[in-house]
Amino acid sequence: MSVTMYYEEDVATPALAGKKCCVVGYGSQGHAHAQNLRDSGLDVIIGVRHGKSFDKAKEDGFEVYEVAEAVAKADVIMVLAPDEIQADLYASEIAPNLKSGSAIGFAHGFNVHFGYIKVPEDVDVFMVAPKGPGHLVRRTYTEGFGVPALFVSHQNATGHAREIAMSWAKGVGCARVGIIETTFKEETEEDLFGEQNVLMGGVTHLIQAGFEVLTEEGYAPELAYFEVCHEMKLIVDLIYEGGFTKMRQSCSNTAEFGDFVTGPRIITDEVKENMRAALKDIQSGKFAQDFVDDYKAGFPRLKAYRKEAAQLPIEIIGAELRKAMPFTQAGDDDAFKIYQ
């Protein structure tokens, strides 16, 4: 199924002009949306609880309020707090202060799609989901371009929800490179699937398995790290720039032949069936409920997973090797630490 890409020239209606925009949260996505919108000439305030993010937003020159007060002042609200706290935050501080005819947006459909947040029928609901982490949304904007995004008009109470979504996407710089219209269902399920099966779960466990096979067969862990982990970025950069074709053209014939011969032995039909099972857990809401239950219990599973992962040999040897590669630590890491 083909989709339409929209660009800045396609956003004809200045739907945010004269409106007060509120960004709830000032983390990775929050600081990027807020600063980009302000630089695009829009009126932006921040809603966030007192703490480091509150202080950082004030330092960056914004009017900053507790969430309830900020929502009450705003015409358009973008919720960029972590997924796991959004439902409680919405119930306690956002919902009581939403005005009829206002608009509320999200950068991920998790809570709306799975029913943890239910918005009154007299309020517009939209989404703008940049396809990149917040520090890149900000950095690329300052460099004159942006990251692509998905946008959704989910609930069109005023008749202007779609224009508001497109204007928000333009304001944060995403329409410079292209925005695609979708639904909360499609964005949420595809996003969770991609994270779990390929971008994070798939890649990290593939790297880990490769490292373990090499070291268990007696190869030096330092060499194994460089081979299956460090070089991953170089390969992915080539795919990013020109797809599989450029990556294969940039590698040796030996590597390309091995790609075609061995890849299907690793990523088998059984792996695809496991992916389908994971997708079903996402579609049914099972994964969402497991995540929410773990959050409400204090994240015992997530904390255990993090502890176990930190003790992996590949993480330990990688940390040592990266000390001699300061270029891997430069730039964006500093922004990430500030805006977590």
Rank of each mutant, 00 (worst) to 15 (best):
43 D>K: 03
65 Y>S: 08
181 E>F: 05
236 V>I: 14
324 A>P: 03
318 G>C: 04
290 D>E: 15
201 G>W: 03
330 A>G: 10
256 E>P: 05
13 T>P: 07
284 S>F: 00
221 P>T: 01
311 Q>N: 15
114 F>M: 02
213 V>A: 06
67 V>Q: 01
85 I>L: 08
147 V>W: 02
220 A>F: 11
12 A>T: 12
124 D>C: 06
248 R>N: 12
233 K>M: 12
293 D>A: 13
191 D>G: 08
233 K>T: 11
185 K>V: 06
132 G>N: 11
305 Y>C: 09
184 F>A: 01
188 T>S: 10
54 F>M: 07
105 G>V: 05
272 K>A: 13
240 Y>K: 15
137 V>Q: 02
41 G>N: 06
64 V>S: 03
190 E>R: 12
42 L>Q: 10
211 F>S: 01
144 G>L: 10
182 T>E: 03
24 V>E: 00
274 N>D: 05
339 Y>N: 03
73 K>A: 00
177 V>D: 02
75 D>E: 13
88 D>V: 08
232 M>N: 09
331 G>D: 05
234 L>T: 13
245 T>Y: 00
285 G>A: 07
277 A>D: 13
153 S>D: 15
29 Q>G: 06
21 C>R: 01
195 E>C: 10
278 A>F: 07
258 G>V: 05
43 D>M: 07
335 A>F: 11
124 D>Y: 00
304 A>N: 08
142 T>N: 13
268 T>R: 05
271 V>H: 12
277 A>H: 11
29 Q>M: 12
104 I>L: 12
314 I>A: 04
72 A>W: 04
21 C>V: 15
141 Y>M: 12
188 T>C: 10
72 A>G: 11
18 G>A: 04
8 E>W: 02
338 I>M: 09
108 H>Q: 07
35 Q>H: 09
337 K>Q: 14
339 Y>E: 02
144 G>Y: 07
340 Q>P: 09
82 P>N: 02
311 Q>R: 14
130 P>M: 05
74 A>D: 09
53 S>D: 08
30 G>N: 04
163 E>L: 09
122 D>W: 06
257 F>L: 14
76 V>M: 00
268 T>V: 10
